[in-house]
């Protein structure tokens, strides 16, 4: 009875010391720190390639994109965060052809599910790595993805 009482005390105190050993060992090993100092390390901070920051439309050097304005991304978006404003262009043969006027993207409504990027038949959309999206005005989250004066890439149907 008394023996088990004393044994219990020593055992308990022993477990407490093991616990304190863990924290103390970290206290004296400052190189185990994992903190990243964010605004300072902005330059070295590289997001991985697959990171889903926002939906972008890559343009090449001639300011050409590959969006044909088919509207599949708009249909597939679960949140309605993509809106297409299309127009009809007349090409050399005199045929009318659908093309985008504005590819509107509401970042504030996007949940990064990736369906628009995946289902795009001409691979016109891609995920960008930008992650600093905080703005003071919500309307700034509505973006036009195609650049001013951009045209459709040759050979993309």
């Amino acid at each position: 009875m008394l023996f088990s009482y004393i044994k219990g005390i020593f055992k308990g105190v022993g477990t407490l010391f093991t616990g304190m050993g863990v924290t103390t060992s970290y206290f004296f090993r400052p190189w185990t720190k994992v903190t990243q100092k964010y605004p300072e390390n902005r330059k070295e901070l590289k997001m991985v390639e697959a990171f889903k920051g926002e939906v972008t439309m890559p343009h090449n050097a001639n300011n050409e994109h590959s969006c044909t304005g088919c509207g599949i991304c708009e249909i597939n978006c679960p949140n309605g965060s993509i809106e297409l404003v299309t127009m009809f262009l007349v090409n050399e043969d005199g045929k009318k052809k659908k093309a985008i006027d504005k590819h509107i993207y509401h970042l504030g409504m996007c949940s990064m599910c990736g369906l628009c990027v995946k289902t795009c038949p001409s691979n016109a959309l891609a995920f960008g790595n930008e992650f600093e999206h905080a703005v003071f005005d919500r309307t700034k989250l509505t973006k036009v993805l195609n650049k001013e004066g951009s045209t459709l890439k040759k050979g993309v149907e």
């Binding site: 390639e49 697959a50 990171f51 889903k52 949940s111 990064m112 599910c113 990736g114 995920f127």
Partner: peptide
């Protein structure tokens, strides 16, 4: 997760 799926917490990796 981030490297493969593009998301850390919420991955949407399946379809």
């Amino acid at each position: 997760f981030e490297e493969t799926t593009g998301g850390r917490l919420i991955q949407s990796y399946n379809t």
